[in-house]
Nucleic acid binder design. Structure first.
Length: 515
RNA sequence: GCCAGGGUAGCUCAGAGGUAGAGCAGGGGACUCAUAAGCCCUUGGUCGGGAGUUCAAUUCUCCCCCCUGGCACCA
């Protein structure tokens, strides 16, 4: 296993404010990235924004501002939110940056030189008002384009096309061989079949340009300044342009190669065709080998059950509002624990509150607080290093946690960690330290209980650090343990003889639910 | 119409050929270190519908219905 780990998210389109789906994807990728760091790997976590294109140009125009200004404003919304959610990305992909532009132009120039593009004329129905071509789908039941499109004209337009179709068989073979090798191109595996079906139907090539008469807010084609490149080469390429890739002949790719290939965390809506087809073929055309093809981790959606919900006060699913109201820990914990990676889930404020109160406040927060309180009261917070009947159990759950995180089953991993919490709370009842404290003959037993709880909490804090990093750190602070948080340190017995615990401070204040 | 996913306790979901589980919510209890938290016990389901295979199906097969995506077709 290479000791580097490259993870990306989709870059978000800066045409509107972030919603809960954007937040989920980033938090998911962040948790995976943080886990890989815990495991000792050198992680490169890339996320960012997709800032060019027609819609941005239009929105800016409507507001009467320059696209660059418009984009900067929306981008700051994402940047601010990611700060509040404690994203730990190592690099930020903003597609207006010069580094990106020149990398994309390098790619385009090379593929042009190698004959991967051709120019062609296509005619179609074009809405002057909406500034876009219309497809058959836009026709109403009567076969006509509706009034919302304004004047519709049949026009001819020249554009550049990327030869996609000739890579069809290669892609099919790649999909199959990756599946056979037990390293599917797409996770979860039921999506492999979906992609395969789509690839089988692949026929046409891909339009990669827009004439400047229609779109100026983009990256100019290096071989024809009358055009800009359209979305695919602009956006998808961020995964390599911000990781040190350079398409120019003779470029030094050692840094890039040390990172690549990536795990692309994406939503199910952009698997087919962009990532599953266009991106794979783009990479191949650029000379990437089969072994250098990335893996796609496809997540599901948070569905909002009942439109009425979003209307009622406080039920908004604006992540900004959620974080302001419940804090980043509650939001991260909910988004990571209440959905099975790859599946859809129903978003519910009630469940967010419920899970936070039951699992973080009542189970984990209270365990920390009662442990430190007892240690302080009975032993002035000083531990004796003891063997423990729970050591094996904690190790077993730690292993289960690691296995689940390694296969991106974050929900299952959280469950494994929380089982330790539950076990510890039961252990407190079983051993009743408040009784042991009254009996001098039970002194060793009391020390064993206090050490067991403190050491378990130390390990729990490590396991929870990818999920709720700030609070996991706070647990370690209260335990007064300064060791490095890593999976290697999540082994029983790191708290030394005579260790002085810190002061108990309630960590997860309960959310007082209305009603 | 085709492909994929889903339809299991009030809610969110696990599960697997031998007559169903977890967490939360609900009910009861003992305790007091603790964020009135925690712990123990407990109510609750003809596992979407129908047929078949089997000694035995909720778990396999077929048909049907509903929800989610994607694709196609008609208009």
């Amino acid at each position: 296993m290479p000791n580097t780990f490259f993870i990306t998210t989709a870059i978000d389109y800066t045409n509107g404010a972030p919603h809960i789906g954007h937040a989920y994807e980033k938090v998911l990728a962040d948790a995976i990235a943080r886990h890989q760091r815990l495991a000792g790997r050198d992680v490169f976590f890339l996320t960012g924004v997709d800032q060019h294109g027609q819609k941005v140009q239009q929105s800016a125009q409507k507001r009467g501002v320059e696209p660059a200004e418009f984009v900067a404003e929306i981008t700051s919304l994402f940047v601010e939110l990611w700060k509040k959610l404690d994203l730990s990305h190592d690099a930020w992909a903003a597609t207006v940056e010069n580094l990106h532009k020149s990398c994309v132009q390098g790619m385009l120039q090379r593929l042009w030189d190698e004959g991967q593009f051709y120019k062609s004329t296509q005619s179609g129905y074009y809405s002057v008002r909406q500034e876009q071509f219309l497809t058959e789908k836009e026709r109403g039941p009567d076969g006509e384009f509706g009034p919302e499109w304004g004047e519709v004209v049949l026009i001819e337009e020249e554009n550049y096309y990327f030869k996609l179709a000739e890579h069809r068989d290669w892609l099919l073979h790649l999909i199959d061989s990756r599946t056979q090798a037990g390293n599917p191109l797409v996770i979860p595996d039921f999506r492999v079949a979906e992609l395969r079906n789509a690839v089988e139907k692949l026929t046409g090539d891909l339009c990669i340009s827009r004439p400047k008469s229609r779109l100026t807010w983009g990256i100019e084609l290096p071989f024809d300044p009358a055009f800009v490149t359209y979305v695919w080469f602009d956006a998808l390429s961020n995964y390599i342009s911000f990781a040190g890739y350079d398409a120019k002949p003779g470029a030094d790719l050692s840094l890039f190669k040390s990172r690549w290939p990536a795990l692309h965390v994406i939503g199910k809506d952009i698997l087919i065709p962009p990532h599953g087809i266009y991106w794979m073929i783009m990479l191949r055309a650029l000379g990437f080998t089969d072994a250098e093809m990335p893996t796609l981790l496809v997540h599901g959606w948070w569905n909002i059950s009942g439109a009425k919900m979003s209307k009622s006060l406080g039920n908004s699913i604006d992540p900004e509002v959620l974080v302001a109201r419940y804090g980043q820990a509650a939001v991260r914990y909910y988004l990571l624990s209440d959905i099975s990676t790859g599946r859809d889930a129903d978003f519910s404020i009630e469940r967010l509150e419920q899970r936070y109160n039951a699992e973080l406040a009542n189970s984990l927060g209270n365990l920390l607080n009662r442990t430190l309180s007892m240690a302080k009261r009975y032993r002035s917070g000083i531990l004796r290093r003891m063997d423990s009947p729970l050591a094996a159990f904690v190790q077993e759950k730690t292993n289960a946690y690691d296995a689940a995180m390694s296969s991106y089953q974050v929900q299952a991993a959280i469950e494994a960690a929380m089982e330790i919490v539950t076990r510890c709370n039961a252990y407190v009842e079983e051993t009743a330290p408040w009784k042991l404290a009254k009996d001098p003959a039970q002194s060793d037993k009391l020390d064993e209980v206090l050490y067991t709880l403190s050491e378990s909490l130390r390990i729990i804090s490590i396991l929870m650090s990818p999920i709720i990093p700030r609070e996991a750190e706070a647990i370690r602070t209260q335990l007064n343990w300064q060791g490095e948080a890593s999976l290697a340190a999540a082994r029983w017995g790191a708290l030394p003889e005579g260790h002085q615990l810190g002061e108990p401070v309630p960590l997860f204040p309960r959310i007082e639910t209305q009603e």
